[in-house]
Amino acid sequence: MQGVVKVNSALNMRSGPGSNYGVIGTLRNNDKVEIIKEVDGWYEIRFNGKVGYASKSYITIVN
């Protein structure tokens, strides 16, 4: 499943599904990501070869 990031500035990509996990990357508005699965309001995603987590509130699913 594919998604597009929708933010005003930047979205942190984290090592786990929560804001208490470390930041491993930064996503920008309109970045395209691969959604692997949903975990407690977060998406596990793949972006630029990295796998991490981002809040699903800021990612819109596209077909």
Rank of each mutant, 00 (worst) to 15 (best):
M1F: 13
M1V: 14
M1P: 06
M1K: 12
M1G: 11
Q2I: 07
Q2M: 12
Q2H: 12
Q2C: 04
Q2S: 11
Q2A: 08
G3K: 02
G3C: 03
G3Q: 02
G3Y: 03
G3I: 03
G3S: 03
V4Y: 08
V4P: 01
V4R: 04
V4C: 04
V4H: 06
V5M: 03
V5P: 02
V5C: 04
V5N: 01
V5I: 10
V5G: 05
V5E: 01
V5K: 01
V5Y: 01
K6G: 10
K6N: 13
K6C: 04
K6E: 13
K6I: 12
K6Q: 14
V7K: 10
V7D: 05
N8S: 13
N8D: 11
N8A: 07
N8M: 11
N8Y: 14
N8P: 07
N8H: 11
S9F: 15
S9L: 08
S9I: 08
S9M: 10
S9P: 06
S9R: 07
A10Y: 13
A10G: 14
A10S: 12
A10W: 11
L11Q: 12
L11W: 02
L11S: 05
L11F: 07
L11A: 09
L11T: 15
L11N: 03
L11I: 15
L11R: 06
N12C: 05
N12Q: 12
N12W: 13
N12D: 15
N12I: 09
N12G: 14
N12L: 14
M13F: 13
M13L: 11
M13E: 01
M13A: 05
M13H: 02
M13K: 00
R14T: 08
R14D: 01
R14Q: 09
R14A: 05
R14H: 10
R14G: 02
S15G: 10
S15K: 07
S15E: 12
S15Q: 10
S15D: 15
G16R: 02
G16F: 02
G16H: 02
G16S: 03
P17L: 02
P17A: 05
P17W: 01
P17Q: 01
P17K: 02
P17D: 01
G18E: 03
G18D: 06
G18W: 01
G18I: 00
G18K: 03
G18S: 08
G18N: 05
S19T: 10
S19L: 14
S19R: 11
S19Q: 11
S19G: 12
S19W: 10
S19M: 13
N20V: 12
N20G: 13
N20E: 14
N20C: 05
N20W: 12
N20H: 12
N20Q: 11
Y21S: 04
Y21C: 04
Y21T: 04
Y21A: 04
Y21M: 03
Y21P: 00
Y21H: 07
G22F: 07
G22I: 13
G22P: 09
G22S: 15
G22W: 13
G22Q: 11
G22Y: 09
V23D: 04
V23W: 04
V23H: 05
V23T: 06
V23R: 06
V23P: 07
I24Q: 04
I24M: 08
I24S: 05
I24T: 11
I24C: 04
I24Y: 02
I24F: 03
G25Y: 14
G25E: 12
G25D: 15
G25C: 05
G25N: 09
G25R: 11
T26R: 07
T26F: 12
T26G: 04
T26Q: 08
T26P: 06
T26S: 10
L27Y: 01
L27S: 01
L27D: 00
L27H: 01
L27K: 01
L27M: 10
L27F: 03
R28G: 07
R28C: 05
R28P: 03
R28H: 13
R28L: 09
R28A: 10
R28Q: 15
N29K: 08
N29V: 05
N29C: 04
N29M: 09
N30P: 04
N30V: 03
N30W: 08
N30Q: 09
N30H: 08
N30F: 09
N30I: 03
D31I: 04
D31Y: 05
D31M: 06
D31W: 05
D31F: 05
D31H: 04
D31V: 06
K32S: 13
K32R: 11
K32E: 06
K32M: 15
K32H: 14
V33E: 00
V33F: 04
V33G: 01
V33D: 00
V33T: 03
V33K: 00
V33I: 06
V33R: 00
V33S: 00
V33A: 03
E34G: 06
E34I: 06
E34V: 08
E34K: 07
E34Y: 11
E34S: 09
E34N: 12
I35K: 01
I35D: 00
I35Y: 03
I36Y: 13
I36F: 15
I36L: 15
I36D: 04
I36Q: 10
I36M: 09
K37C: 05
K37D: 08
K37N: 15
K37T: 13
K37Y: 07
E38W: 05
E38G: 05
E38I: 10
E38Y: 06
E38A: 08
V39N: 06
V39G: 04
V39E: 10
V39H: 07
V39F: 09
V39D: 12
D40C: 05
D40N: 09
D40P: 09
D40E: 15
D40T: 10
G41I: 15
G41C: 05
G41R: 06
G41P: 06
G41D: 14
W42C: 03
W42K: 01
W42L: 02
W42Y: 11
Y43R: 01
Y43W: 09
Y43L: 07
Y43N: 01
Y43D: 00
E44Y: 07
E44P: 00
E44D: 03
E44L: 10
E44V: 05
E44W: 07
E44H: 10
I45L: 10
I45R: 00
I45M: 08
I45K: 00
I45Y: 00
R46N: 10
R46Y: 08
R46D: 09
F47S: 09
F47H: 09
F47N: 06
F47Y: 15
F47L: 07
F47C: 04
F47Q: 05
F47T: 07
N48D: 12
N48V: 09
N48Q: 14
N48L: 10
N48S: 11
N48W: 06
N48C: 05
N48I: 09
G49N: 13
G49P: 03
G49Q: 08
G49K: 11
G49L: 09
G49D: 13
G49F: 13
G49S: 09
K50R: 14
K50D: 14
K50Y: 07
K50W: 08
V51F: 12
V51C: 05
V51P: 07
V51T: 15
V51R: 10
V51G: 08
G52A: 13
G52T: 02
G52R: 01
G52N: 01
G52Q: 01
G52F: 02
G52Y: 02
G52V: 03
Y53V: 00
Y53D: 00
Y53F: 10
Y53P: 00
Y53L: 01
Y53Q: 00
Y53C: 02
A54P: 00
A54L: 06
A54H: 01
A54V: 12
S55A: 12
S55F: 13
S55G: 14
S55P: 15
S55D: 14
S55K: 12
S55Y: 13
S55V: 13
S55Q: 14
K56L: 08
K56P: 06
K56Q: 12
K56R: 10
K56V: 15
K56A: 13
S57W: 08
S57F: 08
S57R: 15
S57D: 15
S57T: 14
S57A: 10
Y58V: 08
Y58S: 08
Y58E: 07
Y58D: 08
Y58I: 03
Y58F: 11
Y58L: 07
Y58H: 08
Y58C: 04
I59C: 03
I59D: 00
I59M: 04
I59Q: 00
I59L: 05
T60R: 09
T60N: 13
T60V: 14
T60P: 04
T60K: 12
T60I: 14
T60S: 09
T60H: 08
T60E: 09
T60M: 06
T60Y: 10
I61A: 09
I61G: 05
I61S: 06
I61V: 11
I61C: 04
I61D: 05
I61H: 07
V62A: 07
V62Q: 07
V62M: 09
V62H: 08
V62L: 07
V62I: 15
V62E: 15
V62T: 14
N63Q: 13
N63K: 04
N63M: 06
N63G: 15
N63D: 12
